[in-house]
Design a protein around this nucleic acid. Structure first.
Length: 571
RNA sequence: GCCCCCAUAGCUCAGUGGAUAGAGCGUUGCCCUCCGGAGGCAGAGGCACAGGUUCAAGUCCUGUUGGGGGUACCA
């Protein structure tokens, strides 16, 4: 499918060259040419403000430049005409060409607007990446939806995409989890033992369920066991839970990467060695860059022994970072750098990493680590997802994973629907913090934009179903009978490619979410006005409209698929 | 203190330096019960503040105010 903005930009480019050859315009390298639909559709289908930009550098009036460009504009099948309005060059699409795009849309079907942007390139999207210590909570869910939508958009842009989940099952938290399950298990066996109400123990009720299951599987066999078998059991169960939750919203990871494998392969210490070789490591009991304000930090018990510091200040950081603690254990940062080097070594052209806002500093340090090792840090794109604030009863609802009180993604899905959760979490810029009003999400579940969008699909599908019942086929449809209203919709469809391209380049999946809503907003009035089976609709017109609606259905299906949403038969 | 993100309609949010700033929900009035009314049409209602850059600023820069996150030898 043709990318209209690019095609128009090419025309302008060619026109400028031609004008230069003819001596109408002076020689200069044309700047990037920005084509977009004007806000007011009466002004044209696409518009370009290049003449205004060129006015100063080449010393002519915008209107004069615009006229010259139009004069040299080559012909194109999609272009009806171009006109100069106050120096804007406004393009109008050829309506016959537009009508024929209906067939083109049907030909492309589920591959509609598959771009060549990422053709032959491999992309990886790392997202969720929660350690298996508990069910996914709502705070994670935004990153989950965004990550998966990005993966889908990159696929549409032509990339081969791998979805990766990075986790660590070896830390203190997992040991705590094992110990917590052990207490729950002993409780199930009737022992009078309390789960200590401290940070070291997970209070969540899911562990009681695990304990019950464990008792029915193993009986009293584990009564004298230490934390380890409990940890192993909790971990595998937890992953099953997490996967099941993600599956409810159509998310599946291709690859689970265990942090521990970086220790087993020696990659962690090899990374440290390379950083040392590159001269970025020093040993000290305190941060060298803190000498000016030594009173700034409270002394730490481990600080007596020398730690290994990463001289990240050499790469623009405001302070150096510890990679190996005084006790010889690495911090989280070192394996993380090793992990990202591993990603790059796996040959991805693009590695997208979805992180919460609380990981901002961490990712900066990792990126500097990659830089220090000479890795192509520019291939790593980090998307920082701002916090989701849960609102309940008009107040903020605090989440804490370690205390028992939290709202899981499963809860949220139960209260609304998988599609509602997906859409609501996707329909905003990742940069923006968002409020998620739990009460509203429940109360308004029938009035959510997601239903408006899916209803467009359902109605469209209804038309095709009705056509089958009435034995109306669109064979030999005469597309010249497609009306102005329908063409407006086709014009909108043709911008989907631009949206996918932009969303893929800038990693902004919310673009597609808004496109879906806009498409539905155009669809519903159309459905009312442009009837296939209404009274007085001649059969040839009905056929043309039917084919149009088939194209509309293909597009709605494509957009919903890009968002990972379901296609309901009825609502 | 320093770093990052944000501030657009009553609410939740879009808006790629261009022309008259949009959507959903809510609200006011109307249409319709016709391919599934979870619909359609019409109205009211908005760029935090102050400078600057530009032919052109919601958009870029600086400052102010307000909100959120971070600033560990935690992960």
């Amino acid at each position: 499918m043709i990318q209209l903005p690019n095609a128009h930009a090419q025309l302008i480019q060619d026109a400028i060259r031609a004008a230069q050859t003819a001596g109408d315009l002076p020689d200069f390298d044309p700047p990037p040419i920005d084509i977009k639909p004007p806000r007011n559709p009466e002004q044209g289908d696409y518009a370009c403000a290049i003449a205004q930009r060129l006015a100063k550098p080449i010393g002519k009036k915008p209107a004069e430049i615009a006229d010259l460009i139009i004069k040299h504009l080559p012909k194109a099948p999609f272009l009806l005409h171009a006109e100069n309005v106050n120096g804007f060059i406004n393009f109008r699409l050829d309506e016959t060409w537009l009508r024929n795009q209906i067939d083109q849309i049907l030909i492309e079907g589920d591959h509609l607007f598959e771009l060549t942007l990422g053709a032959g390139k491999r992309a990886q999207v790392e997202f969720v990446s929660a350690n298996p210590t508990g069910p996914l909570h709502v705070g994670r869910s935004r990153g989950a939806m965004v990550g998966d939508a990005i993966a889908r958009i990159l696929e549409a842009a032509g990339y081969t995409v791998e979805r990766e989940y990075y986790f660590n099952n070896a830390g203190q938290q997992m040991k705590n989890l094992g110990n917590s399950l052990r207490v729950r298990y002993l409780q199930q066996l009737g022992q009078a033992i309390e789960l200590p109400n401290t940070e070291e123990f997970y209070q969540g009720e899911y562990l009681i369920d695990f304990a019950k299951a464990l008792v029915s599987e193993q009986g009293e066999a584990l009564v004298n066991a230490d934390w380890q078998p409990f940890k192993a059991y909790a971990e595998s169960q937890m992953f099953e839970m997490i996967k099941a939750t993600l599956a409810r919203v159509n998310i599946r990871h291709d690859h689970f990467f265990n942090e521990n494998s970086l220790y087993e392969s020696g990659a962690v210490w090899e990374t440290l060695r390379q950083l040392e070789a590159a001269g970025y490591i020093y040993e000290a009991v305190a941060r060298q860059t803190d000498i000016e304000e030594p009173m700034d930090e409270t002394p730490h018990s481990d600080e007596k022994a020398a730690a290994k510091w990463f001289r990240s200040t050499a790469l623009g950081d405001d302070k150096d970072r510890v990679l190996v603690k005084g006790n010889g254990e690495p911090t989280y940062t070192l394996p993380d750098i090793a992990y990202h080097m591993d990603k790059l070594a796996r040959g991805f052209d693009l590695a997208v990493n979805i992180l919460g806002a609380d990981h901002y500093v961490q990712h900066q340090v990792v990126k500097r680590g990659v830089q220090a090792l000479g890795g192509s840090a520019e291939k790593i794109r980090v998307i920082i997802i701002q916090m989701v604030k849960l609102i309940r009863d008009g107040r903020e609802y605090k989440i804490s994973t370690r205390k028992g009180t939290y709202e899981t993604l499963d809860d949220l899905i139960d209260m609304t629907s998988p599609d509602a959760v997906r859409y609501l979490l996707l329909a905003r810029s990742p940069d923006a913090q968002m409020n998620f009003d739990l009460d509203l999400a429940v109360k308004q579940s029938n009035e959510n934009p997601v239903y408006y969008i899916q209803y467009a699909y359902v109605r469209c599908n209804g038309i095709l179903r009705e056509a089958q019942i009435r034995h109306l086929s669109d064979q030999d449809a005469d597309l010249s009978l497609v009306g102005e209203e329908e063409l407006r919709f086709i014009r909108k469809i043709l911008t989907l490619g631009d949206e996918i391209e932009f969303a893929a380049q800038h990693i902004e999946p919310h673009k597609i979410a808004f496109f879906a809503l806009e498409l539905a907003t155009l669809f519903h009035p159309l459905y009312d006005k442009v009837r296939v089976f209404g009274e007085g609709v001649p059969e040839d017109v009905a056929k043309a409209r039917l084919r149009f609606y088939r194209a509309a259905l293909v597009t709605l299906r494509r957009v919903l698929a890009l968002l990972g949403m379901n296609l309901p038969d009825k609502m």
